[in-house]
Design a binder for these strands. Structure first.
Lengths: 213, 213
DNA sequence: GCCTGTGAACGTCTTCACAGCT
DNA sequence: AGCTGTGAAGACGTTCACAGGC
């Protein structure tokens, strides 16, 4: 896989993830070839949008035919860098943290949670989904030992920045932040926010003002 | 609250949710007044962006002074329609569904989960966080009785569309979909997708190609 | 003096329309 | 004939720069 273009819009990356999701469900249904038009309909986007998005990374289609579903999934996952295993650690073993640790899909998708950390002495030592909860102070040594690249924050908001600092100090380059708080990180660290309430706010707005789509 | 402009960008709505988050943490720290410049820094956006976003809904600031934090939070939440209680139901009592049902923050933020549904006979009757799991077939009557407006889907992907159909039939106008599947809905229903893997894919891409910010 | 609110300029992403390949 | 890949046009969102008000 090689990137053809210099800058790739963030929106493109988000859509590529959607395409994979839809392509996988097409694959489950036995579809082998699909052209941009019906794929676009299923993803709720414009057909040329799909072609443009893919063009950032290469030429994956066959003119006059369309895209081979299996092939396209592989091309996109390779383009996104998810055709490998990523090691991750999780900080903050509350309700949500536990649910994520028990979520088999993470491992299945190549995002292996190999460490669970918390600073609460009552939680340290507890075993969840085959993983022992370890004191956050020992994060750095563990991350180094295990070759971890992604950190997942599931602490309360007031402890999110401290958790992030631990991760950054340990040399982690990507953070998935479930805590409802913005965090500050160096330029070479990338953060993604998952905030349930942002989505509920958007729904609330759409319903209230009938502003759909 | 009155909307001044006809069309409001989706990106604006998303940012408003961020502003509220940051303003709330400023409020916790005792800040009473803030101008767009430092607020912008905390939210990682441009200062005029904030002023433009707010201008869609009204004039909330004081020239020469800035914005009163408490006042601005109220203005934004009112603009988004989240200054009230919303009743929601949840379909799919798996790991994630349980975690959400136990998440006290939902109620705290005005999104009250008043019903839990699942089609698995082994789960029906179980009590989670004071809520009895009910058969999905009884969704419609319950939604009508309780005045529910938002549905949360936490089923496996292959059952997401069916869950959505139940919600639509029950007259629900907003869906928060945690299932990793696209769903089709009528024009007057609004859907928000929460997909952990989309964010992990984005991280993976950013880390792999050093494409931060 | 200072900071908001806003038209105008700018840049970016999306869509169109068609050339190019199978 | 059909569908992709892509330059050009268009739409949209963001940033600038300053007028307006405290």
């Amino acid at each position: 896989m090689s990137v053809k273009s210099e800058h790739i819009p963030r929106a493109t990356i988000q859509r590529l993830a959607v395409y994979v999701q839809v392509l996988e469900s097409l694959q489950r249904d036995g579809t082998e070839v699909i052209s941009s038009e019906p794929l676009a309909k299923a993803c709720n986007v414009n057909a040329s949008q799909i072609r443009k998005d893919l063009a950032y990374f290469g030429e994956f289609g066959v003119r006059g035919v369309g895209y081979y579903v299996k092939n396209l999934i592989e091309s996109i996952t390779s383009a996104l860098g998810v055709d490998r295993e990523w090691k991750t650690v999780l900080i903050g073993v509350g309700n949500l943290g536990r649910a994520l640790l028990n979520h088999k899909e993470f491992k299945l998708r190549g995002f292996h949670i190999v460490g669970a950390f918390d600073c609460d002495p009552f939680k340290i030592g507890e075993e969840i989904s085959g993983l022992e909860v370890v004191c956050t102070k020992r994060l750095k040594e563990r991350v180094g030992d295990l070759g971890v690249e992604i950190g997942i924050i599931t602490t309360p908001p007031e402890r999110a920045q401290r958790a992030a600092n631990h991760l950054i100090e340990a040399g982690i380059k990507g953070i998935l932040n479930y805590a409802p708080a913005r965090i500050t990180v160096p330029d070479d660290v990338s953060v993604e926010y998952v905030d349930f309430f942002h989505h509920l706010y958007a729904l609330s707005f759409n319903i209230t003002f009938n502003k759909n789509k």
